[in-house]
Structure formats: structure tokens, C-alpha cells
Nucleic acid binder design. Structure first.
Length: 541
RNA sequence: GCGCCUUUAGCUCAAUUGGAUAGAGUGUUAGACUACGAAUCUAAAGGUUACAGGUUCGAGUCCUGUAAGGCGCGCCA
């Protein structure tokens, strides 16, 4: 059992002795920010002072009197009624052994036996991924990794909108370029895609098929070009995402979802929640969470985007997931309540679907906002920026901030690849530890940690010990930035320790053995933490 | 006009979900290698948490109002 849990239990037992039942989750133990407040602190005396019908400090006295002191050096009551704990050295240092034993698994949560589906990116395969989608890709992937480490069964899914108008526009654009390449008269559609990538596809098409496309009738041609275009575009997207260390378990196609009359069946299921108005079919989402009913079938007979998406979400639930997470751009926020409403019509709780909104990224270039548009083809692609900035820096940068925070991406700074980038700070700490361990590889490790008493060593011990709690917190709040904050804190401790404690001293092998073991344990934690972000932990830089 | 998000140090962001003196990075200033990696460390300076009320032992955090910015508000996706 880790040190925080045992403290909680200790306090809980003390309450029990006094005749009060308190849940472990209601007992909060904090890491003291200020060393004069001890190693850990609890506000339980203040929080539960009502139980005691006395003031918090007097309540604290009673709680303390019933504590088991075997791991505790001393206890103090401070301020309005905080209880500050000073731990015995060995209760802090035993974490070293535990981490080294658990290795890659240190920090992982127990199996939850819950299946969670995380859908993210899901960009239309109509062009290269641009940097705007990169934030969603990074955060979606980090959330998946964090939840998996917490013990959930995670399926990462990409939804391909291959049945809508956008794809038709893509097909028309490819055809226009195809005509152009052969010197024939052509016209780029207004709603088309004007990027260089479409020209590439047309060239490839010409190479493979020659002028065979010309002889197709329009319907056949569009169908063929849609499929052809999607295959090429999606292939590139997948390739670039892979380079960004984002890989999906499942690709779902809108076209496939629509097959087998799925929409009609769904409509039939929903029929009591629909009504016709002006020849269009409305879904009564206002009966649930929405502020407005939504059209699902237009007056021309086509379905709106919402309709197949309902089928898609129902489809996901039917595959046995306990929860769905959609990572969407913040401009889709109007979408949350209508989709939850649709799922509620199926009897699901509104909380089975959790939508993580990713706020807009503003790109700054040469000190001014840079507007990038996909259709005009002047957007900076994910692929380009990865090559310039590096995948580690990109991923860390995006993970660093809460998804809900508006964020500026300074392209010039990012491209600078200077030591300003916080990812190097963490990676450097890891590389340094590796280097020390290499230098002292002939010295046998002492995992007891009994000689670790320096202030910087104690700080480091406390920090590596709290990793499992950080993982859990980042999991329940779906917040990768909590991992980056932690990594930074940890790296700070490492560098500080490194500067004031000389690790390898051949005249004092016992102390060296203690410190090398601490280095090894810390190295494991940094690596595990970076892995949750999909950032590498290099041994040399 | 309505809805969602945001407002904290010069700039970019945190604050253990209501706790102690609001913290990091960056930028500015002053120091530190004849030892394991100076991409580092040790300090200093920088704040009326947008504003006004309210809730309580206690508010950056919760409730109300005001102001500023972003994004939505389609039989588009």
C-alpha cells in the first residue's frame, strides 16, 4: 500500500476510534507545498469539525491522539486546523524498491473491466491534415494512453465521413485536375479543393488509368473518383498520423454504417420522437437536453449529417462499450446536447457519452495571426510542422495545456527548436540519469534508500511516490496537461538533486548505491510519464 | 438577441476541484563547473486573480450582475 493510502486509513481509523464513520475518499491528503508544513497535510479536522461540535483545532487534537505513529515522525496542528505530518525517512524511501520492482508498470491502475471508445481526429479525407487538427490528435491520443494506463480497455476510433457532399466536391476537384493535366478544358468547382495534393492525386490517376476515366458516365465517374480519392487521402492521413505516433484500432466508415438500411431502421426506432414540418423530419431533442428540435431528414429527402451520426453512436454503443468519448473542436459545442438526447432516446444515461472539446488554436506567424484555410491550399500541414519542430516537441506542446484553454501556437518559436522548449528539460533529466547510471554501472544498487536524507533527495522521493495519484487524477479528469505539469515538477527535482548531491563517490559505495537506486527509480518514472504523452525518453541527446 | 468557452505576473499557462504566504515557464537582473552531461542549478524582481455584490470558519475556485474577447446559433458537415 502506498504512503498516502496508509495515511488515509490511519486517519479513518482514528475517526472510528472516536465514533465517526468517514469514507476514505472524503479524507484529503495534500503534499505540502511549503516544507515548514511537513511532508503531507490534511484538512480533515476543519472539514469534519461539525462532527466534533467543536472548533477545528480542538478536533485535530482528538484525531491526532488516536493516530498510529509507526510511520510518522511527528504531527503538528497549524493555522486554522491543518494537521501536518512529518514522515519517518524509511516510510518515504521504501518507494525506491517498489518502483524498481514494478518497472514499466509502476503507476498503472488496477484493471477496471470497462470498455471505453475514444473517437478523435475523424477528419474528412479530403486533404492533408493541417496543424489545426494536430491538437485534437495529440490530446485524443494522450487521453487514450492515460486511460489505458489507468486500467480501462481502450479502443481508438476514427470516423470517416465518406458519404457526404465534401467527398463529392473532392471527386469533382480531382476530375478537374485530371482534365487539366491532359490539356482539356476544365473548371475547378467553387466548393472544391484547390490544394497541391489534389493535383498529385490526379497525376497518379492519370498514370494508373490513362484516359479511361473520360469514357465513364458521370455517375460512374463520381463514384469511382470518390473511392479513389478517399483511398489516397486516407492513406496519407494514416501515414502522417503514424509519424505523429497516433494509431487507431478501428476505422468506421459512414458509408458502411449506412448500409443495410441502418438509417431507416434507426428512424423507425425513433419514430415516436419525430414529427414532420415543412416536409422535413424533426427529432424532438427538446424532450431531453436540447434547446431546439433538430432536422434529421431534409425536405429534399436527404439526411442531415446528424442522422447517420446518431446511427454511428448507437452502433458504437451496440458494440458493448461502457462509455464513449468524442474529441471535437470547440466549434462543435452545439452538438453535445443533441447527440446526448439521441442516445437518451435509446435509454442510455446522458453520461455514457463524454465530449471533450478542444479549443481553437490561434497560429501566430511573424507576430501576427496566421489564418490557414484548407480549401485554398495554403494551410500548413501536420506533416510539415512535425518535420520542422519534431514530434516530441509538438506532442508535448499540445498536451501541456488544458483542452478547454484557448491557445496560441507561435510558429516561429516552435520552429526555433531552442532549449526554450519544455520537452527538452524533461528529456534532459532522463538522459542525465541514464548517463550517471552508465558511469556507475559497476556499483551495486542499494534499493533500501536508507541513506537518502538530503533535502533534495527527500523531495525527489516524495515526487516519484505521487506518480500513481497523478495518473489517476489525469485519468478521471481526462487531462493530459496534469502529466506534463508533473513531469516538469519531477525534472526540476532531478536537476536540483543532481546539482547538490554527487551521485558517484567511489570512497562511499554505500551512499552511491543508494543514490544510484534513486536515479534508477526516477528514470523509470520519467519514462513512464513521458510514455503517457507519446513522447520519447532518450538516453542520449 | 440567445447559448458555450475564456479573462490570474510584461507574455504563455498552473493552482491537488472550497484550504495555509496564488505558483511554474519565458522575459529582465545578479551569481555558480579542476567531480557523474551548464539543454543545468541558486537567488532577486514582477499580483487589487477583469469589475461589483453575495454564500461561510475560509473564495482565483460556488451564486448573481456588469465589462471585454473567442466560437456557435443552417433543411452545412
Amino acid at each position: 500500500m502506498d504512503i498516502l493510502d496508509s495515511l488515509k486509513l490511519n486517519i479513518q481509523n482514528s475517526f472510528k476510534e472516536l465514533g465517526f464513520e468517514v469514507a476514505t475518499n472524503d479524507i484529503i491528503i495534500e503534499h505540502s507545498k511549503d516544507p515548514t508544513h511537513g511532508d503531507y497535510a490534511s484538512n480533515c479536522a476543519m472539514k469534519f469539525s461539525r462532527l466534533f461540535q467543536t472548533n477545528p483545532r480542538a478536533a485535530a487534537e482528538k484525531i491526532i491522539a488516536n493516530l498510529d505513529m509507526s510511520n510518522i515522525e511527528k504531527v503538528e496542528i497549524a493555522g486554522p486546523g491543518f494537521i501536518n505530518f512529518y514522515m519517518k525517512q524509511d516510510s518515504l524511501s521504501k518507494i525506491v524498491k517498489e518502483i524498481i520492482e514494478k518497472g514499466d508498470a509502476f503507476g498503472a491502475g488496477a484493471k477496471k473491466n470497462k470498455k471505453i471508445n475514444v473517437e478523435f481526429v475523424s477528419a474528412n479525407p479530403t486533404g492533408l491534415l493541417h496543424v489545426g487538427t494536430a491538437r485534437g490528435a495529440a490530446i485524443g491520443d494522450c487521453i487514450s494512453r492515460i486511460l489505458a494506463f489507468n486500467g480501462y480497455d481502450i479502443t481508438k476510433e476514427y470516423y470517416i465521413n465518406d458519404a457526404g457532399m465534401q467527398i463529392t466536391h473532392l471527386a469533382e476537384s480531382i476530375y478537374a485536375r485530371y482534365l487539366q493535366l491532359q490539356g482539356l478544358p476544365f473548371e475547378l468547382p467553387d466548393d472544391g479543393y484547390h490544394g497541391e495534393d489534389v493535383v498529385e492525386i490526379a497525376k497518379q490517376l492519370l498514370n494508373e488509368k490513362g484516359n479511361a476515366i473520360l469514357s465513364m458516365d458521370e455517375k460512374e465517374r463520381i463514384a469511382f473518383l470518390k473511392e479513389y480519392g478517399i483511398k489516397v487521402e486516407l492513406g496519407r492521413i494514416v501515414e502522417h498520423l503514424k509519424a505523429f505516433r497516433v494509431e487507431f484500432d478501428v476505422f468506421s466508415s459512414e458509408k458502411a454504417i449506412r448500409a443495410d438500411n441502418a438509417i431507416e431502421k434507426e428512424l423507425d426506432f425513433l419514430k415516436e420522437n419525430t414529427y414532420e414540418k415543412d416536409n422535413a423530419l424533426y427529432l424532438k431533442t427538446t424532450n431531453y437536453l436540447d434547446d431546439k428540435d433538430r432536422v434529421i431528414r431534409k425536405s429534399d429527402g436527404d439526411y442531415t449529417y446528424f442522422m447517420p451520426d446518431i446511427c454511428y453512436h448507437v452502433n458504437k454503443m451496440s458494440r458493448g462499450f461502457d462509455g464513449l468519448i468524442d474529441v471535437l473542436g470547440a466549434d462543435h459545442h452545439g452538438y453535445i446536447n443533441r447527440m446526448k438526447s439521441a442516445l437518451m432516446m435509446h435509454g442510455y444515461d446522458k453520461d455514457v457519452l463524454h465530449i471533450e472539446l478542444i479549443q481553437m488554436v490561434r497560429f501566430i506567424k511573424d507576430g501576427a495571426e496566421f489564418k490557414a484555410s484548407k480549401r485554398s491550399g495554403d494551410a500548413i500541414t501536420l506533416h510539415e510542422i512535425c518535420e520542422e519542430v519534431g514530434v516530441d516537441a509538438m506532442r508535448y506542446f499540445f498536451a501541456m495545456r488544458a483542452a478547454s484553454a484557448h491557445m496560441d501556437f507561435d510558429m516561429d518559436l516552435a520552429k526555433e527548436q531552442s532549449s526554450n522548449n519544455p520537452v527538452y528539460y524533461a528529456q534532459y533529466a532522463h538522459a542525465r540519469l541514464c548517463s550517471v547510471l552508465e558511469t556507475g554501472k559497476d556499483i551495486s544498487l542499494d534499493v533500501s534508500g536508507s541513506l537518502l536524507t538530503d533535502k533534495s533527495e527527500i523531495e525527489l522521493l516524495k515526487n516519484i511516490a505521487k506518480f500513481p495519484k497523478v495518473v489517476e487524477d489525469a485519468g478521471v479528469t481526462e487531462s493530459p496537461y496534469k502529466i506534463t505539469n508533473y513531469i516538469h515538477e519531477l525534472a526540476e527535482c532531478v536537476h536540483s538533486f543532481y546539482n547538490c548531491c554527487h551521485v558517484i563517490d567511489r570512497d562511499n559505495l554505500q551512499l552511491s548505491g543508494n543514490r544510484l537506486a534513486l536515479c534508477k527509480a526516477t528514470k523509470i518514472v520519467i519514462k513512464n510519464a513521458l510514455n503517457l504523452l507519446g513522447v520519447s525518453a532518450p538516453e542520449h541527446m
